Simulated assay, not measured.
Amino acid sequence: MKLEDLKKVIEILRRDYGKLNAPIERLKAQKRGDPFRALVCTLLSTRTRDETTAEVCKRLFERVKSIEDLLEIDINELESLLYPVGFYKNKARYLKELALQLKEEFDGKVPDTLEGLLRLRGVGRKVANIVLVEAFGKPAIGVDTHVHRICNRWKLLNTKTPEQTEKVLTQILPKEYWMDFNKLLVAFGQTVCKPVKPRCDVCPIREFCEFVKIRAL
């Protein structure tokens, strides 16, 4: 994909986003722009399907509504609430440690900077960037497997890791597109540009995609 076509592609994905009914939208509904919920949901979504995470978060937030609730809940009960997200026992432990860290180091508030978020237990760059966007409205690019895969499939870049992809994207993508880039590509990757058997026949941006051209050879 040519860099000059990227803006056109983003506008098309924005236009079609509401039609996709992608699982990411059900997960976003559980976050509600609240920093605590956004952080917890995003942490739980790692290595777990968004539809599964959304159901778990809905159940979890009926019981855990604050950092204090997270501190007080029994670890066994928390584990049962988190099942069946991936690595639910590890994530239960991370959440307990995270709640204590937020109380002791951040006065019970989720930090609103990349540096602060990266200090939190279990939080990497992807999670931190998504929280910055969804909870605080700050420009950042959350690069997960969908974003990394699709950008490379488009031949927009040539990177080996999500971290490398994030670095390149921040250099080539105008900041005005940063905030919704993750949700657009995740929704697109969940419904059209799938990891296996991508639906190139119905893809709205196929005229710009190098992958489509290669498949046609």
Rank of each mutant, 00 (worst) to 15 (best):
C57I: 12
E62T: 13
T42N: 14
V56G: 10
R47D: 07
A54C: 09
E51Y: 06
E68C: 05
V64Q: 01
T53K: 06
A38I: 09
T48N: 02
S45C: 00
S45Q: 04
K65P: 04
L39G: 03
R63Q: 11
S66W: 11
R59I: 09
S45M: 07
R49G: 10
L39R: 04
F61G: 03
A38P: 04
L43G: 00
T42P: 00
D50A: 10
E68W: 12
A54S: 00
V64Y: 01
F61K: 04
D50L: 06
E62I: 12
K58F: 09
E62D: 15
V56D: 11
V40M: 02
V56K: 01
F61E: 05
E68P: 02
E62Y: 08
K65Y: 10
I67D: 01
T53G: 05
C57Y: 07
S66A: 10
T52Y: 07
E62R: 15
R49M: 14
D50G: 08
L60R: 02
D50W: 06
I67R: 05
L39M: 11
A38D: 05
E51L: 09
E55K: 14
C57P: 09
L60C: 09
R47N: 13
K58V: 13
C41H: 02
L44C: 00
A54F: 03
R49Q: 15
K58C: 12
T52Q: 10
S45R: 05
R59L: 15
R59K: 15
A38Q: 08
K65I: 11
S66D: 04
